[in-house]
Amino acid sequence: MNEEKKNAIKYLKIARGQIDGIIKMIENERYCMDISNQIIASQSILKKANSEIIKQHLSHCVKNSCCHDDIDEKLEEINTLIDKLMK
C-alpha cells in the first residue's frame, strides 16, 4: 500500500472518530455551535482524505494509463471529478 492510501486511511479513521463524537454530542444535547464546529472539522478531514486519494490516482492510475494509450478516459474522469468538486 502506497503512502497516499495510508494517509487516506489515517484521515478516514480520524473522521470516523469525530463523527462518533458528534453523534454523542447530539445525543447529550450539547451546544449547537459546538456540534457544527465539529462537523466542519470532520468535513475538513474528509477533504484531506479525498486529496490523498486524488494524488494516488494521478501518480499511479493516470501515470500508468499514459503507457497504455488510454489517457483520454482518465482525463475525462479527472474532469468529471473537478466538476463535482467545484459544486
Rank of each mutant, 00 (worst) to 15 (best):
M25E: 05
I45A: 08
M25T: 12
S65R: 00
E77I: 12
I78P: 07
N64G: 02
K63S: 01
I45T: 14
K5C: 11
V62G: 06
M1N: 08
I22K: 08
L81I: 07
I78D: 05
Y31S: 09
A49S: 07
S36I: 07
M86W: 01
I14E: 14
D34L: 15
I53T: 00
A15G: 07
D83M: 12
C66N: 01
A8D: 04
M33R: 15
K13L: 15
G17P: 02
S36W: 02
L85W: 04
C32L: 13
E3V: 06
N28C: 04
S51F: 14
A15E: 04
N79V: 10
K84I: 13
K13C: 10
R16W: 00
L81T: 10
E77A: 09
I9C: 07
E3S: 06
G17V: 14
K87Q: 15
I54V: 13
N28Q: 13
R30I: 02
S51M: 07
T80N: 08
L12H: 03
D83Y: 11
E77F: 12
K13Q: 10
K47A: 02
I71D: 11
S36Y: 10
M33G: 05
C66V: 01
C67Q: 12
A15Y: 03
C32N: 06
C66T: 01
D72V: 06
C66Q: 02
I45C: 09
L85D: 03
H68Y: 02
N7T: 07
Y31W: 04
C32I: 13
E27Q: 09
K74I: 00
I82C: 05
C66F: 00
L46C: 09
N37L: 05
M86P: 00
D70V: 08
Q38P: 03
E76C: 02
K24R: 12
S59I: 07
N50K: 15
M1H: 11
Q18D: 08
K48Q: 11
H60T: 09
R30W: 04
G21P: 02
D72F: 09
I82P: 00
I14V: 13
E73M: 05
K47S: 00
E52K: 15
I53D: 00
E77W: 07
S65G: 04
G21E: 02
I23V: 15
I22W: 05
A49V: 06
Q38E: 07
S51W: 03
